[in-house]
Structure formats: structure tokens, C-alpha cells
Design a binder for these strands. Structure first.
Lengths: 205, 205, 205, 205
DNA sequence: GATGAATGAGGATTCATTCAT
DNA sequence: TATGAATGAATCCTCATTCAT
């Protein structure tokens, strides 16, 4: 008789929003933003088209929600590492390893982000925010490379970023076949100063 | 009112196909495959929709035509370099420099290819061919890295590929601002054995 | 926690129904029947959609409720005047003045009614009732014009009705700018026999 | 073999646009702007939904096209009469008679215009133009009333306009039953100065 | 070879209404 | 009494494709 409590409503909302955004993420990643229809998304989420519009004002807003969540995951990870007490070499190692973990575990997110990176008009509204965030991330990474004593830390950081982006791209093309573990070791070997940096207590040779 | 010779017709054909595929390339690159309509493409090409369908059976076929042309440009370049008489270091340098030139001069092509790389279903029909070509290219690159005496030429080649892909990605994000020249030097420095490789007749130090 | 008395419930009921129908009236008048959504109405009324449907079975019923209330206001006014002890000239003057007052004070109601008058299918179900009421009103007005001694009271009454409707239409188009007071005087001058009819105790010249 | 000539295309365009706008006019008049769907309109016009959008960019534009055409019909009529060599009384008679003819023959147009008059937001974009046109028309009518020697020509003209609008409203409510001919005579009697104005060569008494 | 009118399936979005609590 | 989550039919509009000329 009495209306549902607001916490009940809130729980229902959370549940539905989560299912919708998960389904949308999958379909956007599989078929691209334009290629995934609201009908498909709501069907995969197991809700009606109408309900989707209760929670997201438009297809674009749904995309923005997903993109921002994905980006924030990366931001949080970077922030956590950068603000830790570890030395710069350890920070770079951690960042490398956790980035790859994130790539593997949240493949769909990153596939989506990558595909959007080449269709600028779709994220038009979000671009200022995203560029700001990317600039922030780059600056944080730069401090790590400065700490490592590189002569040209900015360029070295850009190079490292290119490597990581390229790795991600190639992994996404064939997730099952890519020798990610070897590539990770190679990256660490290339960027970490030998004889100085210790891994798990041992000196890195 | 003599009938046009068949060579005249053929020239018109070529001209029309070229204009259509140029227009399509631009629009696919700007708005994505799904986002570019046949009406827009034919308008920008200055032909009627009907004529477009005289030359290309479908929107997909038009895309395939463009993609294959772009890929072949890269293939030709690689083949030319690999089959040349130059040593492996020189080959890698040439490949690096010419890849970057190609990226800068044909930005739209590569932007399109990159965006398609993350929308597997769009290129479904073309995938076997493309994977074949990519495998071929990788094998050719591998021989270069073998020639350079690397211990793990395959991994080193993958790493180099990742770098080049990453560079391209970052350049596409902000073509006006990216320090491509410095990055190119950095790449050459990282991958070319010092004291051995000669550049423009001088020893590389 | 004593249960509310039924009169308390009844008061709440009245309060809610009133708020809903006021909100609905405003929105119907602003955006038309089709243009106003139940969501908007319930929001402006400060109640939930569910509650709205407790009181009104459907959007149509809500409209009917409002329309009938508005019409009854007019009916009551006419009845009061016609059944008064005043002479026909006085009756016409009163009707004219009070109609205009009603128009100005309840602009939204009349705007709504006017817009509905031209969309027959929306009021389909209500039409028999409305036509009946309109016929009744016309008959009452006719007796006034008969009392005034017109040769063709029916036509004269129709003419007067047209004038009043036209005035209302024009006023609604630009409520802020219309010289309603002058027009009212003009109407009285045109329809009231001079030298006979007294206004506020004075003879009308 | 050769493409259709542009005049052939033009003829097809005209034919289709005409059928579409006729169908739209009918349905807008019957069910209101919001109540008439594109599907219904294109079905009644005997064309596909897609074709409708070849000729009209949106439902709104279709409405604007129809409204402007209707308004221009009235404008042309007024202009023709006002600029004629007839005296003011004759002009007023002609305007009255031809307005009524237009009302009866193009009932749908006027019903549509009337219904739109009360839904301001629908014609928002067109309002400036329409108000301009209405102002122009009122000024022209004013010159006629000035010519008739009225003391307050503006008010008298407004009164006349109200009468004509009201007549139209009432006629639209029950086109089959309204005694339009008698009302017309009544209007002429009320507004035309007796003994001065000649009709068909006779003096009006 | 060349045109653009015509089609209709499919896409994003809205909204009256229902219902569990 | 009161809530708002949930539904799905219906709406406006787009677009690849066909076809008569």
C-alpha cells in the first residue's frame, strides 16, 4: 500500500542503469556507436527502449556516461600510482603492468575508446573534457620520466605512450594470439634503467 | 556526333570512379562509414546517386575499394623497400621515414583505416584478405629485424610495429601539434644500431 | 497515528484534483492537448503520474473534466443573468461585460476551448453534450434579443455571438495590445437601443 | 537511355508536392498539426514517407508551406479589391462577399489556420512574418473604413474584423447548418451606409 | 553513361498507461 | 493514497538502393 521507499527506487535505478550501460558498452564496442541501435542495446540489457530513456536522455548521453566512466578508471589508476611512495622506476613498472591488466580485463572499454578516437564528431561535446584529462595524465607521466633522469623526458614520455597505445591497438586486433607477456617484458627492459631498478627486491639486470 | 571511342568512355569511367572514391574517402574519414551517406558522397563527388551505383555495387563495395587501395599503397612501399639492395638498417630507416611521410600526406586514408580497425563487422568480408596482407607485411618486416641481428627479431618487430602504430594514433589526434620530427629521430635512435648504420653516407653515431 | 477521517481524505482528494486540473489546463492551453504530456502535467501539479491516474482514468477524461468545468462557468453566468429580474437591455449589457471579464480573467480556459473547437476528433465523445449546451445557451440568448424587440431575433443573436467570438479570438491573439475597453463600448453602442436602456440609473444616450 | 529532361523532373516534382500538400492540408485540418502523422499524410497522398522528405525538410516546413499559401490567397484577394477603382462601400461589399466565398470553398485552409492561431508555439518560426502580414492587411482595411467616413475607422475596422472572424468560427462549427446567406446580408446591412451605396446599379435602401 | 524521383525498412525518441509496493 | 519504474506502440526522420527514362 505504501509507496516504495526511495532507497528501493534507488536500487532499482542502479540495477537498470548498470545493465543498460553494460549492454551499451558491449554493443558500442562490437559495432561502433552508429552501428549499435537503441533497440539492440535495450534488448541485450533486457529492458524496454522506453526505460533506457528514463535514465539516459539520448544515445549520446549514454555514450558519454560510458566513456567518462572508462576514462576515470584509467585516471584513478594513474593517480594512485603517481601519488604513491614508490620510486619512479617502480612507478613506471606498475603503470605498465596495470595498464596492460586493465586493457585485458576491460577490453571492450578500450576498444570503444579507440574507435571513438577516430570519429571526432561523435565525441564533440566531450572533447574539451577529454583533452583536459589527457593533458593532465601526460603531465603526470612526465614527472615519472623526469624522475628517471631522462634527458628529454617529454619526448621519452611521448614515445612510451606511443608504445603503450600501439601495444593496445595490436592486442585488440587479435586478443587471443598476441604475445602480451613477452611484449610487456620487452617494454620494461626498454624503459627501465638496468642495475638500478629493483623488482620484487631483486636488482634488475 | 560520332560515337565516343571506347578509350574515351574508359577515361570518363576512370575520372568518375576517382572522384567518387576521393569523395567517399573524405566523408568516411570525417564521419565514419555509417555516418557518411551515399547522398553526401555523390553530392561531394559531383555525380548522381545513380551513377555511383553504376560503378560500385553497394556502399560496402565502395568502402572495400578504398580500403584495398590504401592498403596496397602501404604494401607497395614496403615491397619496394624490402626488395631493394639496401642493408637492413637502411631499410628500416627508409621504412620509418616513408611510413611517416605517408601518414602525413594521406592522413585521411589512415584515419579511416584506423577507425575501421575497431569496427570488425564493417570489414567482415574483407578480413581474410586483410589479415593475409598484414601477415605478409609482418613477415617482410621480420626479415629486416633478422638482418639487424636482434636476438628475438619477431618480438622486436612487434615492438617496432607497436611504436609506429602508436605514433600514428597520437599524430592523428592532433596533427597540428604533434612533434613528429623529434619522434622520428627518437625512433631511429632507438631501433638503429649505432656506429654501424650510415646515413647519407655518414656513420650514425 | 490515528487514521485520517474520511473528510480529511476527501479534502486531500479535492486538493489534488484541483492542482492536477489547474496544471493540465495551463499546459493544454500552452501546448495544445496533444502537445502536453502526462509527465509534464503531473510534474507541474507536483504529484506523481500514478496519482493522476487515480483521479482521472485517462488523459481524455482529464480534458473532459476541464472542458466541462469551463463550459459550466459560462453556463452559470448566462443562467444567472437570464433568470434575473433585469430588463433585456440590462441583461445584454451584463452578459457582454461579464463575458469579457471572464475572457480576460480565465484566458487559458478560453484559449483551450477555442483550440479544441477546431480539432473535432479530440472532443468527439463530448460533442453531443457540448452541442446540447450550446443550443441551450443560444436559446436563452434568443429570448433576450426577442425582448429587445428585434425583427429577426435569431439572426441578430447569431450576429451578436459572432461579434463576441470574434472579439475573443482577436483578444487572444494579442492580449496585451487589444483595445478591449473601446471595443466593449462599441459593442454596447451597436446592440443596445439608445435612449431606452439605462446604465447605472442613467439613460444611455 | 538519356536521362529524363529537367522539365520532366520538374513536372514530377510539382505533381508530388501538390498531392502531398493537399493531403497534409486535409489531415492537419481534420486532426490538428500534432494529430496528423507523416504516415497518414503520405498514405493519403499516395506516396512513400521518404518522398515526402524529398520535398519538405520536416513536418514543420510542410506546415509552413501550406500556411503561407493559404495566407497568400487571402492577401491576394484583399490586394485586388483594395487596389481596384471601386468606391469604399463597394470594396467592403466585395471583400465581405469574397471572404465568405473563400471561407466556404477553402474551408479546410481556414479551419487549419484557426486551429493554429491558438497554438502559438507551433507557428513560432512563422510568427514574425504572419504578424507583419496581418498588420498590412489591417492597414489596408482601415483605409476602406476611412473612406466610408467613420468617425473611428480603426475601431470600426476592428469590429468588422471581429464580426468576420466570428462568422467564420461559427460557420466552421457547423458548415451544413449555418445560415450564411442571411448573415452575409445582415453584415452588409450593418456596415454599409444606406442610400449611398449602390449595388448592381441600384441604390441600397 | 547519367539522372534524381521513389521506396520502405530501420533508427532515435516520446508518451499514455500499468503495476508492484 | 501515493510513487515512479517499466512498457511498447507510435512518431518523426534517414538512407541504401532501385528504376524509368
Amino acid at each position: 500500500m505504501s509507496p516504495r521507499s526511495s532507497s528501493q527506487f534507488e536500487a532499482m535505478r542502479q540495477e537498470s542503469m548498470h545493465r543498460i550501460s553494460e549492454a551499451a558498452l558491449e554493443l558500442f564496442a562490437e559495432r561502433g556507436y552508429k552501428g549499435a541501435s537503441i533497440a539492440q542495446i535495450s534488448k541485450r540489457a533486457g529492458v524496454s527502449k522506453g526505460l533506457l530513456y528514463n535514465y539516459f536522455e539520448s544515445k549520446q548521453e549514454l555514450l558519454h556516461y560510458i566513456v567518462l566512466h572508462a576514462v576515470e578508471t584509467g585516471e584513478d589508476m594513474l593517480e594512485e600510482i603517481v601519488s604513491s611512495a614508490a620510486g619512479p622506476a617502480e612507478k613506471l613498472r606498475q603503470f605498465t603492468e596495470r595498464s596492460i591488466e586493465l586493457l585485458v580485463s576491460d577490453l571492450k572499454h578500450w576498444r570503444l575508446l579507440a574507435s571513438l578516437a577516430f570519429q571526432p564528431d561523435i565525441l564533440n561535446d566531450l572533447m574539451p573534457v577529454l583533452e583536459q584529462k589527457q593533458g593532465d595524465a601526460m603531465n603526470k607521466m612526465k614527472t615519472v620520466f623526469e624522475g628517471l633522469g631522462y634527458e628529454n623526458p617529454t619526448e621519452e614520455m611521448l614515445f612510451y605512450s606511443a608504445v603503450m597505445d600501439g601495444l593496445a591497438m595490436q592486442y585488440m586486433q587479435a586478443p587471443g594470439h598476441y604475445p602480451m607477456d613477452q611484449m610487456k617484458e620487452l617494454v620494461l627492459n626498454k624503459f627501465l634503467p638496468k642495475g638500478v631498478y629493483t623488482r620484487n627486491g631483486e636488482v634488475w639486470a
